[in-house]
């Protein structure tokens, strides 16, 4: 009985780790630019689709895709910011939120439709890769296939790197300055456009990496994006908008809750439970667990 619990817990932590990758990027981008990127999940889906095609045709090791995805999607994120998002940031605050939601939602629809067209020409609805290694047994506990374990290690390493980058590097300090007080940071010489573009690049790149891991543990469709965005939004609201630690803890809470609910009630209850958790947390703390009151 205890074994089952540990397995559920580990499974939940893995899912939570992937969610953390998604949510960290989203919360960073929101904190710096005040733009709510509803297309975040669709960039994840795009990342996993690109990874899928490359792995499908070249049979490369999925983990070799990480640097490729990072660079490609960092570039996509920077381009997206400079091309479209920058003009929303310049709008007056009362129209900025609605503009950002509508524009990124439009982007989400465009990505979804293009991806669905690409997939349907090959007669596919879902895509996933099975890169299975034999399960590992440690002290009577059967760990989920090692691909998952490696994924977890990579995810943890990635999160720590991102954390150190934000805490220690100069760019990271500028990012934090922009999150804390935009006006003062800009007046003190932080180059707003450059830093925001970099943040968006990181955000999208992390989403694409999360897409790669999702590809290995579950299957995705062209329409998975919005659902994942909602999950990521749930997480960052749970933790408090713009909070790094909040997003991390929110992701783990959601991952573990989903894992238990999926085991005891069935997966059709997952969305209901996750949104209920969100609503309960907001009732108790209207600004999220780690949000500033």
């Amino acid at each position: 009985m205890l074994d089952i619990h540990i397995q559920i817990l580990i499974g939940g932590l893995l899912t939570g780790g992937i969610y953390a990758l998604i949510a960290l990027g989203l919360t960073l981008a929101f904190g710096v630019t005040r733009i709510l990127n509803v297309a975040h999940g669709d960039f994840l889906m795009l990342g996993s689709l690109v990874a899928y095609w490359v792995i499908y045709f070249t049979r490369t090791n999925p983990f070799l895709m990480i640097p490729i995805l990072l660079l490609t999607f960092f570039a996509i994120g920077v381009t997206l910011y400079l091309g479209i998002i920058r003009s929303i940031v310049k709008k007056p605050p009362e129209t900025m939120l609605i503009s950002s939601i509508v524009v990124t939602l439009g982007l989400a629809f465009m990505i979804e439709d293009s991806a669905s067209y690409l997939l349907s020409t090959r007669g596919m609805n879902f895509f996933s890769i099975s890169y299975v290694l034999p399960p590992v047994e440690i002290g009577g506990i059967i760990l989920p296939v090692t691909v998952r374990l490696i994924s977890l290690i990579v995810i943890i390493a990635g999160s720590i790197l991102l954390y150190l980058f934000i805490k220690r590097s100069l760019v990271g300090k500028m990012i934090r300055a922009l999150i804390q007080n935009r006006e003062v940071a800009i007046s003190l010489g932080v180059r707003d456009t450059k830093i925001s573009a970099i943040t968006f690049g990181i955000s999208i790149a992390f989403a694409a990496i999360a897409g790669l891991f999702m590809l290995m543990i579950t299957s995705l469709s062209a329409y998975s994006g919005l659902e994942l965005t909602i999950k990521a939004l749930t997480i960052i609201i749970l933790g408090g908008l713009g909070s790094f630690i909040g997003a991390l803890i929110g992701a783990l809470i959601l991952g573990v809750t989903e894992s238990y609910v999926g085991f005891y009630l069935g997966i059709s209850w997952l969305p209901i439970i996750s949104i209920s958790v969100l609503i309960i947390v907001l009732l108790l703390r209207p600004r999220g667990l780690f949000g500033v009151e």
Partner: peptide
């Protein structure tokens, strides 16, 4: 025949960018 959602999305992007009011 194709790309209804795509064009709908494009409309959203244009509306959001150029006339949020």
């Amino acid at each position: 025949t194709h790309f209804h959602l795509f064009i709908y999305g494009l409309i959203l992007v244009l509306v959001g960018l150029f006339m949020p009011g």
